[in-house]
Write a protein that binds this DNA or RNA. Sequence first.
DNA 1: AAATGAGTTGCTGAG
DNA 2: TCTCAGCAACTCATT
Length: 599
Amino acid sequence: MSIGLDCQNDLSDSIQKLNPKSKLFVLREAPQTLFPKLFKAWNVTHLVFERDTDAYARGRDLVVTELAKKAGVEVITRYGRTLWDSDEVVAKHGGKPTMSITQLQAAGNAVGDIPKPIPAPAHLPDPGDMPLDFEQDKPTTAGFDDLNAPHRSGGDNGDNTYRAGIAGMSGDFAVETLEELGFPAAAATTPHRGGETIALGKLDAIMADAEYTATFRKPQTSPAAFEPQSTTLLSPALHFGALSPRLFYWRARTVVDAYRGKGGPSKPPESLTGQLLFRDMYFAAQAAVGAPFTQTLGNAHCRFIPWHLPSKITATATTADEEAGAVDAAASNTSPYDVDSAQAERWFRRWAGGTTGFPFVDALMRQLRREGWIHHLGRHLVACFLTRGGCYVHWERGADVFAELLLDHEPACNAGNWQWLSCAAFYSQYYRVYSPVAFGKKWDPRGDLIRRYVPELAALDARYIYEPWKAPGKALEEAGVRVVGDGLGEGEEKGEGGTYPEPMFDFAERRGACLAAMKAAYSVGLHGDDERARDGTWRELFEQAGQTEMQGNFDDAGDDDGEHADDAEHEVRRGKHGRGMSDTIREGPMDRHVKRLKI
DNA sequence: AAATGAGTTGCTGAG
DNA sequence: TCTCAGCAACTCATT
C-alpha cells in the first residue's frame, strides 16, 4: 500500500468512470526530456499543468515552459495548492515573506476572497493516438542519493520503472505498481491510505460532525491519541492533491458560519481554517525567500545559531544549475553534514531511530517511522528536543529526517515548522521548552501511546512509564524490562530481550545548557545571510558572549566507545542514520531532496 | 515614539 | 480540578 499510488489509481478510476476510453496515462520519464519528444509524436497543441512554488518545481516548470514555447505548444497553468496564490500573497506583502499569521491574513485579504473550488468535469473527450516511436531517456542518477533505494529488493536497487519502457510493464500507461518500483508489498508499514475518494469521504464525515468542525482548537487536540487520532489526518491528501485546500476551507467555513452552539465557533489561528492559513503562510514565505528557505545559509529571515551537525555546503547555485532543472537537482548530493561532535551525532542517531531512552520521544519517532504521520504537537516535542530543548543539533538535520518519513511532507511547511520550533524564525520564545516527560503525561497519563509504539515498556506501571530509569527494580521485573544500553546497539536495546535504553542525557541539564546557548545566539543576533555566518568569524562573537555550547566545540571528553568524529563523518549521509529504516514506503523522491546551496 | 499587550500549542508549584 | 504567578524575557502589532 502506498498513499501516492492510491491517489493515482483513484484518479485514474475517476477518469475512467467519466470516459471508459480514458484513464490516467502514466509515462516513465522526466518531463524535461520527455515532453519535447511527446510534443512532436503526439501533435500536442496545449500543455496544461498546475504551478508549484517549491524550489525544485519552479526550476522544472521553467524548463518545461521554455520547451513548450520552442515547440509552439501553448502553455496554460493553474494554481490551487494553497488558499491564495502564493506569489500574489507575496506581491501584496511588499515582496517580503509572510512571517506571522497576521501578516498572512492581511496579505491574503488584500489579494481577495479565497476562490471557491470548481466542480469536477462531467465528461471528458476521448484520448488521441499516443504513438511511442521515440527512445526513452533515463534520468541522470550519478551521485543521486535515492532515499528509497534501501527499501527496494532485487538487483540494481530493484527499480524496474525505467527498464519497463515509457508505458510501463504492460505497455498500457498503467499507474506504476509497488513491484515495478522495486518494493515488496509487505515493506510498507503505514496504515494510512490515500486517494480522492477516501479523502472526500473523510471530509464528509468530519464536516457532518458540526461540533468538532466548528469548535476545533488545535492546541486542545491530543498528540497522544492514535485510535482515532485527534486531528483530521487530511494533510497527506492535501500534499498529494487528493483534496483541494479551498474545498476544505469552504466546507469548514460553511459549517462554522452555521454554528449556533454555546460559546460560538473557534477562530483562526486555532480553528480548522486557521490550520490552512498556517499552511499558506509557509508557502508564501517560501515563495518570497526562494531556495534558501529550506536552509539557514543565505536566508535573511532565519537566525544563525551554531547548532551541532551543520549541513555541508557542497553546491553553488548557478544559472546552469537552474536550467538543468529536475534531473540535475535530483542528481546532486542530498544534505550531507559535518559531524562536529561525536556525542551530538549519537544523540541524533538515537533520536532518529527512536531509542533516546525517553519513552514519549521514542514512541513518537517510532510512530513516525512506521506510519509516516504523527500529530502536530508530537512534531513540536521531538523537534524542540532535537534542537533548542535538548540536543542542540541543527534543525536542518531534523527537517531531513521528517522530509524522508512524512507522508504529508511539504518542503515549505516542514522547513518553516522546524524554524519555528528551533526558534530560528517565526517564533522566538525559546525559554518555553517542551519536556519529554511532562508534555506527554499531560495528555496521556497512562502512557497508552508509549505502550503502543514502545512495546518493551507495555507492561510498565504508569507511574514510571515516562521515566523508566527511575522505576524500582521490582516494577521493572514485573514489566519484564531492563533499562540498559546506549540505544545504538544492534538488537538488545531495540526491545528484543526485554531491554529499553537508558536516557541519553540528563534532560534538566541539557535544557539549561541549551537555554544559555540560545540566549547567547539571540544576543549575537546573526542571520543566515550574514557574511560572518558563512566565513566562520561568528565564532569570535559567541566566544565573546561567553558561550561554549556551539558547533565545533567538542563535548566528548571521557568518550571511550572509540567512535570519533572523523570516522563517523564518512558514513553520515541522509538515510543511513538510525536503524530499522525498512518502514514506510516513501513517495516521490524528487521533492524530498534538499540541496543546501552556497548563496 | 515609547509603551503595552498579544502571541495557535511550556513547566512547576501554590492556593 | 482549575487558575495563576513565577520562571526569563523574544518580536510584532497597536496605540
